[in-house]
Nucleic acid binder design. Structure first.
Lengths: 206, 206
DNA sequence: AGGCTACAGTACGGTACTGTAGCGTTTATC
DNA sequence: GATAAACGCTACAGTACCGTACTGTAGCCT
């Protein structure tokens, strides 16, 4: 978002003064309610009118901050990706297992799990949405990549294994369960996925 | 669909006379155009008005055949699942490989690949849609199950392997590539998925 | 031939949404 | 305290959609 009149030219250098608290408040309140509605109704179910009703912020004010409905939604979507800190346990297998559990739980609890199909859908037709989805996707795939990289540094990874496919092998089955077959993930399933991933990725040394 | 006045009570037994060709025509034409629009615009992008415009069938006529927009869409969705004939090659590994290739190609070419996210999205909120999605899902998972069953009969499958998870391991990575990471599937990727599935499922006999 | 049925066309009522215009009011900020 | 910016409110134009009522026409079936 570009807020005109915020950056001020002064003495030859642009300084950013304190943001007007009214602007600050409007932006956070509107984005927060947009996010809630997004989770509840999906990408196509969010209207500016409804956001205005729920947030108590006038529709005209919303349009003063975001030029169009889509831009507001994209802004709200950007807050979905939360990059978590990663520290390896020292074992690829352990890292994968814990990551599988981690993702599996977030798939059942977190809000974005409900929204994502609508984002995928919109991304099939609107390039802007596809771009945001791609950014989010890279965050999540990046977490898997971190695990693989750490293991590669330790020499755990099979040289023949294609690292770029790891994310698909790890996340694919989980996503499948959540959105396609709609079955809950039990520990036995997680275990089988972990075994499948490790047999493909880990070097057959010791 | 129930078409009132079609089944006739006669001599104590219900007979189904020839279907009025006008009805036949309307149903096929409307469903066909609904399907096209569905593929192009997604579940949420189909309006009865637009179907009427494209098909040349009056909107009132459409409402005579389908009581509501959703029912029309569900009817059109039901035509997505095409059960193919399956004959095993005699080897689990070969069957899996060819199925992976088969699905992978249909994911890039066929129409339903574009529609599915919108169906998933609608299914998150509307139970009717979720039911149709589940039916389609079971068809596709069933194809994997057939492969596993044939291999089980030949004693190829590891007794410890959980057969119910096979579909997730096979289809999950492919779906991930198509809808989440939007990367094309290359042969090397297919191969890696095949290896992962087989090492988990196949009995370590020979 | 005649009746019945499906159909086309038009016109609605009602709702919801996007985005804009104008005007008065509050509230930071200097 | 003054000024300018941000805000709320109402109203509006324009569009699109769902689902229905009504009138007249074309086509099927016996």
């Amino acid at each position: 978002m570009v807020v005109p009149g915020l950056d001020v030219e002064k003495n030859g250098m642009t300084i950013s003064p304190q943001i007007d608290p009214r602007i600050q408040r409007t932006r956070t309140v509107v984005l927060s309610h947009t996010y809630d509605l997004l989770v509840k109704e999906g990408f196509g179910g969010v209207s500016v009118d409804e956001v205005s009703r729920r947030s108590g912020v006038a529709k005209t004010t919303i349009y003063r901050h975001w030029p169009t409905r889509t831009r507001l939604l994209l802004d709200a979507c950007s807050q979905l990706g939360v990059a978590a800190e990663f520290t390896s346990s020292g074992s690829f297998e352990t890292d994968i297992r814990s990551h599988l559990l981690n993702v599996s739980e977030r798939l059942t609890t977190s809000g974005w799990a409900k929204v994502l199909p609508s984002i995928l859908d919109a991304g099939e037709r609107e390039p802007d949405v596809a771009a945001v989805q791609k950014a989010l996707q890279q965050i999540w795939a990046g977490q898997v990549a971190q695990i693989v990289e750490a293991a590669t540094d330790r020499g755990e990874i099979d040289a023949r294994a294609d690292v770029k496919n790891a994310a698909a092998l790890v996340l694919g089955p989980l996503y499948y369960r959540r959105w396609f077959s709609r079955e809950p993930t039990d520990p036995a399933f997680i275990e089988q996925v972990a075994v499948a991933v490790c047999t493909v990725m880990v070097a057959p040394s010791a």
